[in-house]
Nucleic acid binder design. Structure first.
Lengths: 239, 239
DNA sequence: GAGTGGTCTAGACCACGAG
DNA sequence: TCGTGGTCTAGACCACTCA
């Protein structure tokens, strides 16, 4: 039953968790490891692939295999807690933003409930903690609503708060999948490591979509938390 | 740049989406496909692995590779919508339940905020649509709260609604990861297909944990939806 | 037992990174 | 240039499913 690659993966996993292999350290070369475990390189690589999928090992082509730094887990706070993604994370993160004005492609017009070829602002966020990327967010704001020149998140957040008509509903759809090659590259994660994909649509009281955000978070170091509080006194009415 | 396995995967993917290969159909054997694409079996298998991770292909050892049936996406409705998981799904699903009384292991005592070695009821749900499993849920209820003999979900739901003191908070934590081997087996999904992992903790107004649920949903056919409505200052009428 | 996928080998050659 | 990981081959043998 226990295949060789699982035995090897278990051994390496134990070496990592026990501290024999430290974070950031480079593993012996695949050829050396293959010799040590007396397996072929293909088998050894499939063992490393398991660890890679768990986020324990990072492979760098032409350089080596490295023990990933221990993951400081970040939490995306959903629901009532967060009207904007940059305020939705538990830890302060360095982020970069780039705003561009685009013609809405079809999948966005349906999401934002806009006529085809509408003009809207796309803000691309990448959040980092140190050098390692932590998240990826595409945020779409129609109607020239976003600040064009200074892409400061605070401004958008402030405008959302003072909005008239007020925002009335936030829908957040969460799914799990493997990253696209592009996402894996920018997040510097393995293509076999699951990501958490969030689609958030904010609507005002007239039913118009104010903002849509597509977030991608690496599954090994991020999760989303939704808290719902019930009002105790009046729980008689039901829909 | 384009590796052979990606070219092959693209071709097969197109054959599936275009209908040349129909749902449920068996693909040609790996040996035949390897000959057709003039690659080795190892390369062809790595191409199939890509499709497997996308949920397009199901491998059955000793039998063949099959095109998976088109996924009817199910939605887990979180937040205020759902006090119980069996009411939280968009589509009616057949489910089986098994109740056992266990001594709480340590990871559960911290989650439920209970003293060590507490006795609690574990309910294991598996939901199906037709023959294919859709979800997996472990639900833990302390204090002999769950119905012991008839594990009918309605009874638990009813008790939760009439609870005194009333429930006051639901916390749902969502993460994305690869399934364990056991989960992959019971859900009949590939070990390389991401799953959505939900941990829900329900607390009553005294801060006591009423129920904890651990849900695992296959990422290719399930997502979770959280809706938050904001009440405006003035009294808003129900629509 | 025949045919399928699962695992593994012992190489070859290519692509990348750092000195 | 040298050592690394990335891709691929042409087999071998094992484990499973089904008739």
């Amino acid at each position: 039953m226990p295949s060789r690659r699982h035995v090897i993966a278990d051994d390496l996993r134990h070496q990592i968790s026990s501290g024999q292999l430290k974070a950031g350290e480079r593993l012996p070369s695949e050829a050396q490891l293959a010799t040590r475990y007396t397996v072929s390189t293909a088998t050894l690589r499939s063992a490393l692939a398991l660890l890679q999928g768990e986020g324990l090992v990072e492979k760098i082509h032409g350089n080596g295999n490295f023990v990933r730094h221990p993951l400081r887990r970040i939490t995306y706070a959903g629901g009532a807690a967060a009207p904007a993604p940059w305020t939705a994370f538990s830890a302060p993160l360095r982020m970069t933003a780039r705003t561009t004005n685009i013609k809405a492609p079809s999948h966005l017009t349906t999401l934002l409930n806009l006529p085809p070829r509408s003009s809207l602002n796309e803000v691309l966020f990448t959040t980092h903690e140190g050098k390692t990327p932590h998240g990826l967010a595409h945020i779409y704001v129609p109607h020239g609503f976003a600040p064009a020149t200074p892409p400061l998140p605070e401004q958008i957040a402030a405008r959302l708060a003072d909005l008239r008509p007020p925002l009335s509903e936030v829908q957040e759809r969460v799914s799990a999948r493997l990253p696209t090659l592009e996402e894996a590259e920018t997040l510097r994660i393995s293509p076999s490591l699951a990501v958490l994909s969030l689609t958030r649509v904010t609507t005002d009281s007239t039913g118009r979509v104010i903002e849509a955000a597509l977030l991608v978070l690496p599954g090994d170091r991020a999760d989303a938390l939704f808290t719902t509080r019930f009002v105790t006194e009046e729980r008689s009415s039901k829909k």
